[in-house]
Amino acid sequence: MHDGSGRIVVQNLTKQFGPVTAVQNLSFTVEPGSVTGFLGPNGAGKTTTLRMLLGLVSPTAGFATINGSPFGRLGQPGRVVGAVLEAQGFHPKRTARNHLKVYASAVGVPDQRADQVLQLVGLGSAGDRKVGGYSLGMKQRLALATALLGDPQVLVLDEPANGLDPEGIAWLRTFLQSYARSGRTVLISSHLLAEVEQTVDQVVIISRGQTMYYGPLDHLRQSQQSRVIVQPSDVGALVTALRAEGVQAIEQLPDGRLAVAGVTSKYIADAALKAGVSVYGMQEEQIDLERLFFQLTSGQYAAPGYPGTGYYVQQQPPQQGGWA
């Protein structure tokens, strides 16, 4: 069956729906003990990837394993992985408690577990109401409660913030972090980096069905480049001086100023002084994470080759666990 490692492995995963390639040769690994963000714009193939991982969609090529085993061979999948998916539904005429009891029996946990998870997600007082009358946020909480029934080692959530109010999002953030901290695996997808930035430790960024980056979010932060915008009296002289010092990342902006990356403003000021160039103005500019994310996913900056810390695109060896 499964090895209990809590690791998710996606290896060379490809899915074609007719002529459309939804996911193309995707590979990444998610380790237990952290919250991993699965990021990409809408239509990047996130949902399809998660559904392949969960055995709901069969891959055209490649494989995905949880605990070293494909979903279909987990034996009691509800005890290993819980999932909150977008297109997961409820019968509107069934009460939340009955919904949970239905799946508590399938997972093989006692009925009291239904009450426990209702309390856990804050629906304790609404358990006997029919789900048809639930708000989007309440349904999202109920979906999470369903995923938690089997006390699973791995939690997979597809855009869980949809429909949640800010209070709900803050609650979910805390919940997921503590869940991961207890040594479990949490994979959470989103099309907005900002939405999960404070929740996740690791990120997998995909675009057009391909992996653009995966690794710690901190590494991505560190790779954010700052650049200095400088307005010199003599553009040509400053460029020559900087080039002589070995600075290559110089770009002339349309307004005539220079954008210099990789060096500090003090360094540029010193170089300008030495070259006898006056500096009329200078400012440091940070490329924020969101813009980096946009660049990574806009397709034009399709890695490899993007300057970074060596975590871009499948540079980790494939994780081959004990899957069989």
Binding site: L54, L56, P77, A87, G89, F90, H91, T146, G150
Partner: peptide, 18 residues
């Protein structure tokens, strides 16, 4: 038909051995 229509089939398959 109801399970597919209500999309509860997803949860059903997620909680069964096969």
């Amino acid at each position: 038909a109801n399970e597919i229509n209500r999309r509860t089939i997803t949860t059903t398959f997620l909680t069964s051995s096969s």
